[in-house]
């Protein structure tokens, strides 16, 4: 396939059948390979869509500075696009994120402002909002509340999956900004009656929930509960176990958040199998495992991996 530039090649990812992981010929699992995007994650879709919307709206002009709170992948996607389009990028990232993410951001020329580990991305969002007030000329795209984030998936991810799998019965993805699930979920609901839209939410170690007050919690502005049918909380141990299973059985080397999604997808598959229903379950492979090798998730026992990930933002 030929494209005029790297930015033009975002999306159009393969959907790959998983015969060994699927419980039967009637209940099939399918992996949407978002690691095949230019910077290796699904966030390329949202990042590019948000930048192009801001350009169309006249907010972004050449030489502008973009500011964004991100635990990694969105920052890396924005950094690539910003480099090609001539913007400066400042990301606010929690300090408990993998070293590879920092290395990639530095390579693309982004500036990183670290926020404290306690509170995780909540803190990054809070710090970025303060910085945005201090620098009114900077443009914060704000992935948690920017409709262009979910629109990217409504316009591309959803239609691609439906074209490749018209018999789809379940869609499973990770819940972070909620953009993937809101956009893809809305599109699929409009075209597939009765489809199940399942969220897999990472359950982190305790430091990440270290808020001072329970009313300081955070729900992304994009989140609309009515798009989902089920929401699972997946612990690091289950996510790592499934990440390894995906590699062992199907040869796919995915990041840890994908393991969490596989866990939820297998739960849905087991349920359909037990009830004797046919099912075609598509799930998102968010990124490859490369950026998480240093975390220890891919070697040693599950206990070791669980300990290594405690307190880390692994998804």
């Amino acid at each position: 396939m030929r494209f005029e530039s790297l930015l033009d090649s975002v999306g159009h990812t393969p959907l790959i059948g998983l015969p060994r992981l699927s419980p039967s010929a009637d209940v099939r699992l399918w992996a949407k390979m978002e690691d095949r995007n230019p910077t290796g994650s699904i966030k390329d879709r949202a990042a590019l869509r948000m930048i192009e919307q801001a350009e169309a709206d006249g907010l972004l002009r050449p030489g502008c500075t973009i500011l964004e709170p991100t635990s990694g992948n969105t920052g890396i996607s924005l950094a690539m696009a910003a480099r090609l389009k001539g913007y400066r990028l400042v990301v606010v990232m929690p300090e408990n994120t993998s070293v590879e993410r920092r290395q990639l951001l530095h390579m693309y020329g982004a500036s990183i402002h670290f926020s404290p580990a306690a509170g995780g991305s909540n803190e990054a969002v809070r710090v970025a909002k303060v910085m945005a007030e201090e620098h009114p000329d900077w443009v914060m795209l704000y992935q948690y509340g920017n409709p262009a984030n979910s629109l990217a998936h409504y316009e591309t991810t959803g239609p691609e999956i439906l074209a490749d799998l018209p018999t789809i019965t379940h869609f499973v993805a990770g819940l972070g900004t909620t953009g993937t699930l809101m956009g893809t979920g809305r599109f699929l609901r409009e075209h597939v009656p009765g489809i199940e839209i399942i969220a897999a939410e990472p359950r982190y170690g305790e430091v990440v929930y270290g808020l001072r007050n329970i009313d300081e919690g955070f729900i992304p502005e994009l989140y609309d509960e009515s798009v989902l049918t089920t929401r699972y909380s997946v612990a690091a141990r289950d996510a790592v176990r499934r990440t390894r299973e995906l590699l062992d059985l199907e040869g796919i080397f995915a990041g840890i958040s994908t393991g969490g999604i596989v866990h939820a997808a297998l739960g849905a598959a087991a349920k359909a199998h037990k009830e004797g229903r046919k099912a075609d379950i598509a799930f998102i492979v968010c990124d490859g495992g490369w950026k998480y090798l240093s975390t220890g998730a891919y070697e040693g026992t599950l206990d070791d991996a669980e300990d290594a990930l405690d307190g880390e933002l692994w998804a």
Partner: peptide, 9 residues
């Protein structure tokens, strides 16, 4: 399990 809502992404 009871947990406060936190940001991902």
């Amino acid at each position: 399990t009871v947990l406060p809502a936190v940001a991902g992404g």
